[in-house]
């Protein structure tokens, strides 16, 4: 059981997946930097106008500072997600809190979801401990989210629940034609996780099993 096995399981789609996640993060960071840049520039402009005698409203400065602070916070959160994502392959198999892994997947897909006009929300609920391969789990969540985003606009509630075998992630709502991911690469990935993805009453259900230490 090595990280190499994760990459072999994912095949060429693995690099594509890694690149897609990084591109989404870089886009988010660029947007935050652009907003910081523009609002800092606006405050410089207001200061220059004040030096020339135009009254400066404190409210405008406060608003600009608040926007900058908010986007610094947003960029920091995006970088936090990138850092967690980058470290997923560090330990090929380990216990995870499934809800945290799903939250990370949703954060990494935020921009893609916005582009596809799909609103993703994590439904309230308790956490589920699962012994799994975190990098492959993230890739499986990406497959499910990709199927939902490709199906068209809508609102998707993502719920995490325990099951007899381990845990499950249910994607409810969204476009009705969202189909479970299929094909040799998807099948190999799900098999490596001891997982199944099925359509169940209009929802996508990703059932995950605890993986034994020897897996």
């Amino acid at each position: 059981m090595t990280t190499d096995l994760d990459w072999r399981t994912l095949g060429p789609a693995g690099l594509e997946y890694f690149g897609r996640m990084c591109a989404g993060v870089s886009h988010e960071l660029k947007n935050s930097l652009a907003m910081i840049n523009e609002n800092a520039g606006l405050m410089q402009d207001l200061a220059a106008l004040a030096q020339r005698g135009q009254p400066l409203e404190p409210q405008r400065l406060a608003q600009g500072m608040e926007r900058i602070a908010r986007h610094v916070e947003r960029a920091n959160a995006v970088l936090g997600s990138l850092n967690r994502f980058a470290h997923l392959p560090d330990v090929p198999r380990r216990p995870v809190e499934l809800r945290e892994e799903v939250a990370l997947a949703l954060a990494l897909h935020r921009r893609q979801a916005a582009q596809a006009q799909v609103e993703l929300t994590l439904a309230p609920g308790g956490d589920v401990s699962l012994s799994t391969r975190p990098f492959l789990l993230a890739a499986a969540l990406d497959l499910c989210l990709g199927a939902l985003l490709a199906a068209g606009p809508g609102a998707v509630a993502v719920a995490v629940a325990p099951s007899a075998a381990g845990g499950e992630v249910v994607f409810a709502g969204g476009a009705p034609q969202a189909a479970p991911p299929r094909g040799p690469e998807a099948d190999a990935l799900l098999a490596a996780l001891g997982a199944q993805c099925v359509q169940d009453g209009g929802a996508l259900r990703l059932a995950l099993a605890h993986l034994p230490a020897t897996y």
Partner: peptide, 17 residues
């Protein structure tokens, strides 16, 4: 641009120019 806070700040700055 779909980022309101970017586009409104940029519009105001262009207005100054």
């Amino acid at each position: 641009d779909d980022e309101h806070e970017l586009v409104c700040a940029l519009a105001e700055r262009l207005g100054f120019r």
